[in-house]
Computed example of a mutant assay.
Amino acid sequence: MGALPATDTPNAYVVTASIKRAVLDTIVARQAHGVHFTGAAGDAVLSAPSAYLSDLLRDRQYRSAYQHAHAHARLRNTSAAVLLRRAWPASRTGLCAAWRQLAADLRRQPRTWVPQAERPTAWTPLLATADWMSADVRGRLAKALEAAADEAGDTSTHLAPWADRQDLARVGAGTTGLRELARASHGVDIAAPFLDNEVIRACLAVPADQRGAPGRYKPLLGEAFSGTGVVPDFVLSRVTKGGFNALSYGGLIRYAPVLRDLLGPSSRLAAAGLVTEAPITGMLRRAAAGQPTAQGALHLAVATEVWMRQMAAAPAWWEVSPRVAAA
């Protein structure tokens, strides 16, 4: 942890620091200093999550909803009916009503874990981390959600624009942490063109059902760069993207004892009631057996635990610069 720079919030790149360092090592080997261009936020602005199906249903565009669901289902080896059933609840409610329902759910017993992709589409999905919290913390989160709903009013009526904003905020915060890691360990600057304000405005001006059209992979990228020579043809012709699932499972299996200790009874998260031991142990046991696992939730928990330990070892404070805040 001492080799990682402290950031102002928990950062997801802490968990994948070794992978990022391998990339940065390659950059430095080719040139002592420089700028590394990252594709962070490319998924958020060049495509769209299938959550836009809820908006098509909300707007009673049933024919388009079925056509898109059918195409997405072929890619996911499922059925259009399954995807439309997942999309339907979010099409019948707004953001604030969804938050109030989440508050009610948090006051009940934690759910039995199923993969997030099998749960209904939601305005604010509850990850497995919500089910790992103590009853007291779940109650406090429920009150916070109700207060936020009372304050916000029903300002958001369509799911896709809301989801786009949340994805960009999350990716932007993560990229800030990656920038700190790259500067501290390698003296390399990180540039994220897809987080440029003008790029975001131009891409999000295209409706989600066109950006997320399942028949073409990131159609905006092809329309913008086909024939220019700026982006290699093999990138433009891709129909999917690589993943790190095998690597992630290998790490979970190899370091399960370390993770059990990190997130166990002596962890900062446990002391705050943000995790409890039994579900963490059960999830790591699933990973060791090669079963489906809440990888995203474990990722966030590890990143937050490391961050809390950093703060305890080297307390820091932050001041908001009016100039930076305005930017």
Rank of each mutant, 00 (worst) to 15 (best):
L220Q: 08
A208K: 03
I253F: 06
A208V: 05
G242L: 00
P265D: 15
E198V: 11
V239G: 08
A224F: 05
L252C: 01
F225D: 06
G222Y: 01
V258E: 15
E198Y: 08
Y249H: 10
L263D: 09
A246T: 14
P257H: 02
K241A: 10
E198H: 09
P214D: 11
D233K: 07
A208C: 06
N245M: 13
E198G: 12
R216Q: 11
D261L: 13
T240V: 02
N245G: 13
F225A: 02
S267F: 04
Y249S: 02
V199L: 05
T240Y: 00
G229N: 02
R216I: 06
E223L: 11
L263M: 10
G229W: 00
D261V: 11
E198I: 00
Y255L: 10
A213W: 00
G227F: 04
R201W: 07
A208M: 06
Y255I: 06
A246K: 14
P214L: 09
L220P: 01
R216V: 09
P265H: 12
Q210T: 14
V239E: 08
G250C: 02
L236S: 00
A256C: 05
L247Q: 14
G250A: 06
G264K: 08
Y249T: 00
G222H: 02
L252R: 05
G222Q: 13
A256G: 07
S237K: 14
V206L: 05
G243F: 11
L204P: 11
C203A: 15
R211A: 03
V199A: 06
L247S: 05
F234Q: 10
P232N: 04
F244D: 11
Y249Q: 09
V206P: 03
P232D: 08
P214M: 06
L259K: 02
A224N: 03
S266D: 15
G222A: 08
L220S: 03
L262W: 12
R201T: 13
V231R: 09
G250E: 12
G251Q: 02
S267C: 04
V206F: 03
K218D: 01
L204C: 06
S248H: 11
S248G: 12
C203I: 12
P232L: 09
S237E: 15
R201I: 10
S237M: 08
S248I: 15
S266N: 15
R260L: 12
G229D: 03
L204N: 06
R260W: 05
E198L: 13
T240E: 07
S266E: 15
N245D: 14
L263F: 09
P207S: 04
F225I: 12
P257F: 10
V230M: 12
A224G: 10
L252M: 06
L221R: 11
R201A: 15
E223Y: 01
G215Y: 00
L252P: 00
E198R: 12
L252V: 08
A224L: 13
D261F: 08
V235M: 14
N245R: 15
P257T: 02
G222E: 07
V235D: 08
K241G: 03
